[in-house]
Amino acid sequence: MRMQAAELFALGHDSAAVAGQLCVSVRSVQRWHQAWEHGGGQPWSRRNARLKAFIDTHD
């Protein structure tokens, strides 16, 4: 589920939209998003790290 969230973050979806799509609380999504923004760590795959790097270079 966190992987799906990361893909949606990479596409620019906000926390409320991700929470609605994945049927989880907005607070959970906010925590995932914060982790994703700070380099990911364990929950994120190398693929999502590449997605984040792509977004960071295209801001």
Rank of each mutant, 00 (worst) to 15 (best):
E7T: 09
T57E: 03
Q34I: 06
W36F: 09
L22S: 10
W36G: 04
A17K: 10
R46W: 11
V26A: 12
S45V: 10
M1E: 05
Q30K: 02
S45I: 10
G40N: 11
E37L: 15
K52E: 11
A10G: 13
S28C: 10
V24D: 09
H13C: 10
V26H: 15
W44F: 13
F9M: 12
W36N: 04
Q30N: 00
A35K: 09
F54N: 10
W36P: 02
W32D: 02
Q34K: 12
A10I: 09
H58G: 00
Q34C: 07
R46M: 08
R47V: 08
R47S: 11
V18P: 01
W32Y: 00
H33Y: 09
E7Y: 06
Q42M: 07
A53V: 00
R31S: 00
Q4E: 03
E37C: 15
G41H: 03
A16F: 13
P43S: 12
R31K: 01
G40L: 07
W44I: 03
H38M: 11
A17C: 02
R46H: 08
S15K: 04
G40S: 04
K52D: 12
Q4A: 07
D14T: 01
D56T: 08
V26F: 12
W44T: 04
R27G: 06
E7P: 00
G39L: 05
E7G: 06
R46E: 08
V24Y: 08
S28P: 05
L51A: 03
F9Y: 03
D56V: 11
L51F: 00
R2T: 06
Q4M: 06
A10E: 06
R31P: 00
W44P: 02
R27Q: 15
D59Q: 15
Q42P: 12
A6Y: 07
M1L: 12
E7M: 07
K52L: 15
G12H: 09
E37T: 15
A16S: 13
S15Y: 11
G40A: 05
K52M: 12
R31C: 01
A35G: 06
R27V: 12
A53M: 04
G20T: 10
R2P: 03
A35F: 00
W32V: 03
V24P: 12
S25Y: 07
Q30L: 00
A35M: 10
E7W: 09
G39D: 05
L51K: 02
